[in-house]
Design a protein around this nucleic acid. Structure first.
Length: 646
DNA sequence: GCGATCAGCT
DNA sequence: CACAGCTGATCGC
């Protein structure tokens, strides 16, 4: 749970994810995602009152977050004050003090956070430096390298501070099976069950929060079915989700809820009360998504654990693991890191101590030997900045992989081998397809799974998880996390955009008046025609420029235009030669860099990974050599440090 | 009567 | 296990 107080040292005039107390005085608000612990004060009477008297205060978030937020009537009063921003589109915002008239400019960029639909990180750039507020995130190792806006030209931006989702920043949570692995395990379990008969149904026992949607969509897709949920209302603008969920109870996969659903389940009933039409009793199993973690050297990575006769836990995490966070931090190499969360059983001091190791000053001495080159997307080499730590070599996905899960290891290696990632993308398809065999997977009955007792190197637990036919006919054991066959990553991207949908109200989609409004914003929201560029050249487009009331729809689209995507601004700034925007910032190139490569970097669609600071573009030949060495575990350091040992 | 806080439960 | 978020009790305004 976030305990971020809402304000960042560098930009105290804005508030992020907290809306009470001091934050009531903010000049602008930012909401990273639609979870209650990040919305404290957001519907409070004080803030509501402030809005009434303020002309300029806005709330910035993603389109999806806006949609989800406004789904709750308690937040409706925000409607005309929310400015939804596109992902990966630097946007200039003028922060005006309504009393003094003082103005501060920042550029904000929303980066996908992978935590729940609409979740983003905020990258702020302004006179006080570049600051990243991560919100909550689940990013895999190497993801930072793929984020264009964390880079400036070929380099990683000079990031002053990171306000970090440190939920699992504790070696205890070293490893959490990847999203793909978890999904694969769940898919298999579901398949094992529902293919037995139409009376075999699944209940996904999910908590009341956004974040499980990708599970629903993936299962819906896989089984060419729809998942039963209580309401579709919030997804009415999100066809990617809407397509795979339903309020029709006659389906084999349920994620519906009821205040007493656990109790109902114990008596073999679904939360929705659905029964087979012919009276045949349903065979229900429940799958409860829960986070499972493993120690650094654990070989067990069961993503499904049988808890009882017909109940299972399935690995599922909204947050990055320790190693994922470390990977992220070591890549962006910030000067300061502030935890937003204190992991359970730890103190702030504990976390800070650990985080300090990841700060720039600490890594400096052992400065990076080798940083990712070109588009070495998967197999990025850890830069082992803070020497000694045994974690380091185990840092990447590869190392985190259980050591002797036979198949698993090799596959993982294959998948992450730099050679392949860089040169032979297609090769990675050599992975075996999932065994079509179902019915037979053996599950282990367990009560515990997260014993990360890495103690046993001896490998006593060899076949532990493998067999154990329980008498019951319910699938009875653990699915080890099978390395997914280079899955197309669950389409998280789809959650970050709210595509217009032709109000396909299947069941209970109230056609609210705004259902059309939003649709226009999405892609062409910043259509220049609507605004006369000239009068914007005033540069300080105070966000309240439209104080008069127009139709809601009009206002809606206007408010989207209040804040200029930087690309346009930048051009403008370039013209008058005075980048008054970020001038005092350490390096203006940060700003200008946005501009000119803008076209080219955007065109190069999948974000070829820019070079790391201090490196120069390697020739293909060199690269090959390099990768070979890397693959062979040889030393690739050009100078001083060795890679693995000392 | 509402909001904030906390315990309890999931 | 942890999450995210309910419910319900209590207290204060």
């Amino acid at each position: 749970m976030s305990s971020f107080p809402g304000r960042m040292k560098e930009y105290p005039s804005i508030s992020v994810d907290r809306f009470d107390r001091e934050n009531l005085h903010a000049r602008a608000y930012f909401l990273s995602h639609c979870h209650k612990d990040h919305m404290k004060g957001l519907k409070g009477p004080l803030l509501k009152r402030k809005l009434k008297f303020s002309l300029t205060v806005k709330l910035y978030c993603s389109f999806v977050t806006k949609e989800l937020l406004l789904n709750n009537p308690k937040y409706e009063f925000w409607e005309n004050r929310i400015v939804a921003l596109e992902l990966d589109s630097p946007t200039h915002i003028s922060l005006t003090d309504e009393v003094t008239g003082e103005v501060e400019d920042v550029v904000v960029t929303l980066l996908p956070a992978g935590h729940c639909p609409g979740s983003v990180m905020f990258l702020f750039e302004g006179a006080q430096g570049t600051v990243l507020y991560t919100g909550d995130f689940r990013l895999a190792a190497g993801d930072a390298a793929r984020m264009e806006h964390l880079h400036s030209g070929n380099r990683v931006k000079d990031i002053q501070s990171v306000y970090l989702d440190s939920t699992f920043y504790d070696p205890r949570f070293y490893q959490i099976p990847s999203r793909e692995a978890c999904l694969t395990g769940i898919r298999k379990l579901v398949q094992d069950w529902i293919y037995r008969s139409p009376y075999h149904v699944i209940w996904l026992n999910c908590k009341a929060a956004y974040g499980y949607e990708y599970l629903f969509t993936n299962l819906g897709q896989e089984f060419n079915s729809q998942v039963h949920v209580n309401s579709l209302k919030m997804f009415r603008q999100m066809p990617e989700i809407l397509d795979h969920v339903t309020t029709n109870r006659t389906t084999q996969i349920h994620a519906c809820r009821h205040p007493k659903d656990d109790e109902l389940f114990r008596t073999n009933r679904l939360p929705c009360g659905s029964l087979a039409p012919d009276g045949t009793p349903l065979r229900i199993i429940s799958i409860k998504p829960s986070t499972m973690w493993f120690g650094e050297r654990t070989r067990k990575t069961n993503v499904i654990v049988k808890m009882g006769e017909s109940s299972y836990r399935a690995c599922f995490s909204f947050h990055s693991s320790y190693s994922e966070i470390k990977d992220f931090l070591s890549y962006i190499n910030p000067v300061h890191i502030y935890p937003n969360v204190v992991p359970l059983g730890r103190t702030v001091e504990d976390v800070c101590e650990l985080l300090n190791l990841m700060c720039r000053k600490h890594s400096e001495g052992a400065e990076v030997v080798y940083k990712p080159l070109g588009k070495l997307k998967r197999g990025r080499i850890k830069s082992t900045s803070q020497g000694s730590d045994t974690d380091d070599e185990l840092f990447g996905d590869v190392a985190v992989t259980p050591m002797r899960k036979k198949l698993a290891v090799n596959l993982e290696k294959e998948r992450h081998s730099p050679e392949k990632s860089e040169l032979g993308d297609t090769e990675t398809q050599t992975l075996p397809q999932l065994q079509p065999s179902l019915q037979t997977s053996n599950y282990m009955d367990c009560t515990e799974s997260n014993d990360d007792d890495d103690d046993d190197d001896g490998g006593d637990d060899e076949g532990d998880a493998e067999k154990e036919e329980l008498p019951g006919d319910a699938p009875s054991c653990v699915v080890m996390s099978p390395p997914p066959p280079k899955p197309a990553p669950p389409s998280w991207s789809s959650f970050f955009t709210a595509e217009p949908v032709g109000t396909d109200d299947s069941c209970e989609l109230e056609n609210s008046q705004n259902s059309q409004t939003l649709s226009t914003d999405h892609t062409t929201s910043q259509s220049p025609e609507l605004f006369n560029d000239d009068d914007e050249s005033e540069s300080v487009h105070v966000t309240s420029s439209q104080s008069t009331y127009v139709s809601e729809a009009a206002l809606e689209s206007l408010s989207q235009l209040d804040t200029e995507p930087v690309q346009r601004n930048i051009v403008h700034i370039g013209n008058d030669g005075q980048p008054d925007l970020i001038d005092s910032h350490q390096d203006q190139c940060d700003v200008t860099d946005h501009t000119e490569p803008a076209s080219d970097s955007q065109v190069s669609s999948d974000f070829d990974l820019p070079l790391t600071p201090g490196s120069k573009a390697p020739q293909p030949e060199e690269l090959k050599e390099l990768y070979k060495k890397l693959a062979a575990g040889e030393d690739v350091t050009s100078k001083n440090h060795q890679q693995g040992s000392d």
